[in-house]
Design a binder for these strands. Structure first.
Lengths: 344, 344
DNA sequence: CTCGACAACTAGAGCGCGCTAGTAGAGCGC
DNA sequence: GCGCTCTACTAGCGCGCTCTAGTTGTCGAG
């Protein structure tokens, strides 16, 4: 239809064809007052006809602000998909745009963030950042930054995370009530919330007088980490060491990997061993028996993240804020009474 | 460090501080010849000092091309995460940037694509588009578009997908060899590749003389769809109808949901029923017994998608191309011999 | 000494839009 | 008639960059 080989139409084209000035077209497209009803309609009709659509790059340049939030995420973290959806929704409500940038092998966090900033994002929302506190602080000095899933104390960065402590405490109480004593924790490494979860695990073990049973196995927030841990535990059993009776995994993906490794080797969950995850990502509902896990409200987290970013854009001088959302244990099928044992 | 409350520095600031012209700074930052070694270094040093970074929006505007590829994807489709990673990698190789836009509830494909185009993406890569062929053709007229995972015949759109037919055929042969006759297929609805998979399923059933057993259950590419089908089959069994002995799911997620629903009700896979997925997303390795599935090579698909987009950018007049990549069955634990039955 | 040839650099016109400051014309009160 | 306000519209600068068409200075060949 449109003249082949030609550039995309601009405001000037619309203006010419509608017989008005370029400025008027601009007014119409921004929905501002100052254009007559009839003219407004004509402009929109003409624009539609010639296939005009506003050019964001130019828009960005011209108006000082971009009204765009950048989101750094990790493609493979399912929980973050929920967060991204929530962010889109809340941003739209507040009339902001969203730009995504994924990290992954071959594309580190720094690169992903640079990409966002170079596109003039006014703020960046980092989902589960792995960068150091110092790096985050530096970023916070340079622009508006919000960390989701990881608290960043003493840095110029807002953060949103769940009360990891509370969730872990509930999970641990749940396990202890079921009679478990040998409860190990698979660590999330530098993953978001890992430090808090680890700390809460240790505290709970001490509180229940299980200090001697305390054990943190290094890991990260991937299925592989769960699989590795499963293999490790099985190998230890071969060597005569008793299996733990319960495992508190770093997150759902890790729990999932662990379950797979164990089930494959004939260990029955929860009869022989209980497993608790973290996140309540939709993975949790999908395992054959339903994963007992700690729930985080992704939508609410997303809402807070966007609000924090927008608030700070309106007032740079705000003190860094921290939202600690409620977390709570969801009991499903992977946790059960501790297996009965002979005397040590 | 930087003057508080002030805007981000521009080329002019760098130029002034380095005692050169703005144009020279531009040359340096574009890595073009035409600047002396010493000057070049000075400019870069000064830029670093005042924290200058090029403004992409302005860059976009000024040079005709954006060298940016837009990618539409669905946050929750795990397989697409692999594709995204591949796209980033290949785009970087060809010196293109990538912009992501997710679809989801409350954010349709049209919206996601508009967002990309308004950011001046030169081409859009659509991962598993659900739009109609006509819509895609229209999009292809307006800009350069590549469809991944779905062929779009007779439209001005390149496409990359796997030889769905071959994969399904292999899977069906595998099941028939194992003695299965009552094989049902859970349809992927408007999902990418669904039509081809459905067709190949029907053809295979006919070829094996199982026309009377042919059954396609409506569904889509989500876990929920698998769960629903599981419930449906179980309900039918209550009603006296025999279970199928094998199910060819629309994709891995669907297979996963099905597995969950069945296992929860005491059906044992593959003893009572075999399940085959599609995608070989990393989910496949994670189920307790490993999912038998049809493998698609995400990285290769991503490579083709980017190449197609870039080639067409260089020559708009190219005929629409279609890459059909090899697919092949990966046999894991969810498929086994058909259960022995009494005479009908 | 003059004339290129070349390297190092600069001036300045846009890219497509937003926005401020303005103008034209209609309506109204006095 | 005047001045006023209000609506509907326009002129034109500038956002930060790229890029073409220069300008200057140096050096070697003739």
């Amino acid at each position: 239809m449109s003249a082949p080989g030609k550039q995309r139409p601009t405001m000037a084209d619309v203006a010419a064809k509608a017989g008005v000035s370029r400025a008027l077209v601009s007014i119409v497209f921004r929905g501002q007052p100052g254009a007559g009803r009839e003219t407004r309609e004509r402009v929109l009709r003409v624009a539609d006809e010639i296939g005009y659509r506003p050019d964001n790059a130019a828009r960005l340049l011209a108006r000082g602000r971009s009204r765009t939030l950048g989101v750094m995420f990790t493609a493979h973290q399912i929980f973050q998909a929920d967060l991204v959806e929530g962010i889109y929704a809340e941003a739209e409500r507040l009339d902001y745009e969203v730009l995504l940038s994924a990290t992954g092998p071959g594309r580190g966090e720094a690169k992903a963030v640079e990409a966002l900033l170079s596109h003039r994002c006014e703020a960046v929302i980092l989902l589960g950042p792995g960068a150091t506190d110092a790096d985050l602080d530096a970023l916070g000095q340079r622009t508006v930054a919000v960390s989701v899933g990881r608290r960043v104390p003493r840095a110029r960065v807002d953060s949103v995370h769940t009360a990891e402590g509370k969730g872990v405490r509930q999970a641990m109480d749940h396990l202890v009530e079921l009679g478990h004593r040998r409860i190990v924790h698979i660590d999330g490494g530098r993953g978001p919330g890992s430090a808090e979860r680890r700390r809460a695990y240790r505290a709970a073990m001490r509180r229940h007088g299980l200090e001697s049973e305390m054990r943190v196995i290094p890991g990260d927030h991937t299925e592989q980490s769960g699989i590795d841990t499963g293999r490790l535990l099985l190998a230890e059993r071969e060597g005569g060491q008793a299996l733990p009776t319960a495992v508190l995994a770093g997150n759902d993906r890790c729990a999932m990997g662990l379950l797979m490794a164990l089930t494959r080797s004939g260990i029955e969950v929860p009869r022989d061993l209980s497993v608790v995850g973290y996140d309540d990502s939709h993975l949790s509902h999908l395992m054959p028996i339903g994963l007992t896990t700690v729930r985080q409200d992704a939508l609410l987290m997303a809402e807070y993240a966007v609000r924090f970013a927008v608030d700070r854009l309106e007032n740079r001088e705000l003190e860094p804020r921290e939202a600690v959302l409620d977390s709570k244990l969801v009991v499903r099928g992977t946790s059960g009474p501790a297996p009965v044992e002979g005397p040590a």
